[in-house]
């Protein structure tokens, strides 16, 4: 599979990025080299290999535990502020480019 310039533009659009013409050329080359590597991996026969989305479901897990028990450590009870309290609003808003002290503010959004 070969990445085209149209693909680069589409991906940039989805990522809300504006690219200069130099960047386009560079990214086209980079992407083709990455996808080319994936093509190489694709030569392997993975028919009987289950997909692995996270390494952590295979490694670092107590192998003695099975089923729901196996991953129970990575979930929590429904306890208010059980993990950590919510932020003070002032703290939550402090990195926002724009706010009125109560809300985050962004340039007018017309449609979703």
């Amino acid at each position: 599979m070969k990445v085209t310039e149209a693909d680069v533009l589409r991906v940039a659009e989805l990522a809300n990025l504006e690219l200069t013409s130099e960047e386009r050329v560079r990214l086209l080359k980079d992407l083709n080299s990455i996808v080319g590597y994936v093509d190489r991996l694709n030569q392997l026969d993975t028919t009987d290999v289950p997909p692995m989305a996270q390494v952590s479901d295979r490694y670092g897990v107590d192998q003695a535990k099975t089923s729901s028990e196996r991953f129970a450590y990575a979930s929590r009870d429904d306890v208010l502020h059980g993990l950590r309290p919510s932020l003070e609003r002032q703290e939550a808003l402090k990195n926002a480019p724009q706010s009125d002290g109560e809300f985050f503010k962004v340039p007018k959004v017309i449609e979703k």
Binding site: R76, D78, V79, L80, H81, G82, L83, R84, P85, S86, L87, R89, A92, L93, E102, F103, F104
Partner: peptide
């Protein structure tokens, strides 16, 4: 009582941006 991935409150109608982390 709390959100799906953190322990902030899900309460409706609280002051804006107070149940965030």
């Amino acid at each position: 009582a709390t959100k799906i991935f953190c322990s902030c409150s899900t309460k409706f109608g609280d002051p804006p941006n107070t149940n965030v982390c």
